[in-house]
Simulated scan of single mutants.
Amino acid sequence: MEWLAPLAETGVARALIAAPTLYLLVNAAHIMGIGVLYGSILALDLRILGLNRSVPLHVIAGFLSRMAAAGAGLAILTGLCLFSVRPVEYAGNAAFLAKLALVAVGLAHALVLHRGIGWRRATTDGHASAALRLSALASIIIWTSAIVAGRWIGFL
Rank of each mutant, 00 (worst) to 15 (best):
G150Y: 12
A75M: 13
E2Y: 09
M1W: 12
A110C: 00
L16G: 02
E9K: 15
A101Q: 04
H114C: 03
A13K: 06
L16Q: 11
E89N: 05
A75D: 03
G79R: 04
A128D: 02
L57I: 02
M67G: 04
P56L: 00
I48W: 01
G39Q: 14
H58C: 07
H109Q: 08
G11D: 10
A136G: 04
T123L: 04
A29T: 10
G116E: 10
V88E: 12
G92A: 08
I117C: 12
L4N: 01
E9W: 12
L137T: 01
L77G: 06
L4Q: 11
H58K: 09
R47H: 12
N93T: 04
F96E: 09
I17F: 06
E89H: 05
N52Q: 08
F83M: 07
L107T: 05
F83A: 04
I153L: 03
L49V: 07
V103F: 08
L113Y: 11
K99H: 13
P20W: 11
L82N: 03
G71W: 09
E9Q: 15
N27L: 06
V26L: 05
L16W: 02
N27C: 02
A8Y: 02
G33I: 01
A72E: 04
P56T: 06
Y90I: 00
A68T: 05
I60S: 11
R66W: 13
A110N: 02
S84E: 06
A5D: 13
I76V: 12
G79W: 03
G154M: 12
V103N: 02
A130R: 15
A72N: 07
V148R: 11
A43E: 10
R121P: 00
A15N: 14
P6D: 13
L111V: 08
Y38T: 12
G33M: 10
G50F: 09
G116S: 15
N52T: 05
W143C: 00
L113I: 10
Y23D: 00
I17T: 14
K99C: 02
L4R: 03
A136P: 06
C81V: 06
S139T: 10
S65E: 14
R47C: 05
A69R: 00
L16S: 09
N52M: 04
T10G: 08
M67P: 03
S65L: 07
E2A: 01
L137P: 00
D125V: 13
E9A: 09
G118M: 01
A149Q: 04
A91W: 07
I17D: 14
L7E: 11
D45K: 04
L82H: 10
T123Q: 13
L80K: 13
L82R: 10
A43D: 07
L82A: 11
A29Q: 06
L113W: 14
L4G: 05
W152T: 07
L134N: 14
A68E: 00
H58I: 00
W3A: 14
L132P: 05
A108W: 13
S129Q: 10
F155N: 08
D45I: 01
A15L: 15
I31V: 15
